Amino acid sequence: MKNTAKLLHLKCHQNYIGIFLTSTAYTRLLKINENNIDKKFIYLSLKKSGCLGHKYYITLFKKINNSILFFNKQIDIYIEQKNIFLIDGIIIDYEVQPFHNKFKYYNKNIQHVCGCGESFNIKNIQEK
């Protein structure tokens, strides 16, 4: 992961660590917001998927119920309340490669990542 010294911190009104973005992830999310003519919200979710069980997704939604907002002056990211302990403290990067661009996620609660790097399993953690 590049640019770790310049992480942008998205805070929350509740007592959570937050979400951190590298400069490339921040730039990509700003671009998504620019092109978002339907005024949908950026939503970071965790779904059961892949060979190890979970995968992160960034999507756009019109309305999000039971969500927590992480924000700064230009970027808002919503997450489902039920996923807070699996997302809080995450670092999001955006990797630009010759044939494939993608968001990459770094989370201290990830125990194992599959060979392709897309799915993972999570340490058994207790709610704080």
Rank of each mutant, 00 (worst) to 15 (best):
N33F: 07
Q14F: 08
K6V: 00
K104I: 13
N83D: 15
K11Y: 04
N35I: 05
H100G: 02
D38S: 13
K102F: 14
L60H: 08
K123L: 14
C114N: 14
Y26A: 13
G117K: 01
S23H: 09
V96I: 15
Q97K: 11
T4D: 05
L30V: 13
I75P: 02
S119N: 01
L7A: 02
F71D: 00
I64M: 09
L46T: 11
L30N: 15
K40R: 10
C114T: 07
K108F: 02
V113C: 02
D76S: 15
Y57G: 02
S45E: 06
N72K: 09
K63H: 08
T24K: 13
K104C: 14
K62A: 03
L30I: 15
I91D: 01
G53D: 10
F103C: 10
N72T: 10
Q97M: 05
L69E: 09
Y105R: 04
K31S: 10
S49K: 09
D93Q: 10
Y16K: 07
I87P: 03
I92S: 06
H9P: 02
H13L: 04
H100K: 12
Y26S: 13
I92K: 03
T24M: 08
L86M: 12
N3K: 07
N15D: 14
I58Q: 09
L44A: 06
F20Q: 06
K128V: 12
K108Y: 02
K11E: 06
N72D: 15
L60S: 10
R28D: 04
N35H: 12
F70R: 03
K55S: 13
I68Y: 05
L7S: 01
Y56K: 11
I122R: 04
A25C: 04
K62S: 07
Y105K: 07
I79P: 08
F20S: 02
K102E: 10
Y57K: 11
L52D: 06
L52M: 10
M1P: 06
Q74V: 04
Y94T: 03
I92D: 06
I77W: 02
R28E: 15
F41I: 02
H100F: 13
